[in-house]
Amino acid sequence: MIQETLKITGQFILLIVLQVLIFSNINFLGYINPYPYLLFVVLYRLDSSQTVLLFLGFFLGLFLDLMLQTAGAHTIATLTVCFLRPAISNFSFGVNAENSHALEYGTKRSSRMIFLALLVFTHHLIYFSITIFNWNAISYILSNTLYSSLFTLSILWLTLSLFNVRR
């Protein structure tokens, strides 16, 4: 239990620091940035309390908003993704949704990919909708969402493969 809490705290701080110091300054092709802090929402055990996840997600977004000078977009997007996570994992893993190791073994690779993609895409769509907040710029929102999602997804997939020794 204590070990788990320590692990979560470590992830929380490390991901915020990495996001603020590195990933938000990449500006690939001038404007595309990945948001791999979502790894926190991905790695949070699927069988743990969702209420705690909601609060953690809220504060994760809030700290990022405060440090990245964005108004409230990270908070709203992360919070919503945390809220939708059970539905997304049910959709992608089916009966294995409650399996705490669903992301490491015992599930198909395609299911994991769908899980990640849905999570990331939802988050980015909400994030860009809130930051731009203008119905007339819908094409800009969608293109930004698509490119950033691909960027984030590849980073998340690589990170997961790197630390996943068991096949």
Partner: peptide
């Protein structure tokens, strides 16, 4: 429905925050 309620509450906070900051 506590998760849904907590979600809505925190979402409200986030929107107030958004409204005040930008």
């Amino acid at each position: 429905n506590k998760n849904a309620l907590i979600y809505l509450l925190l979402l409200l906070f986030a929107f107030v925050f958004l409204n005040n900051r930008s």
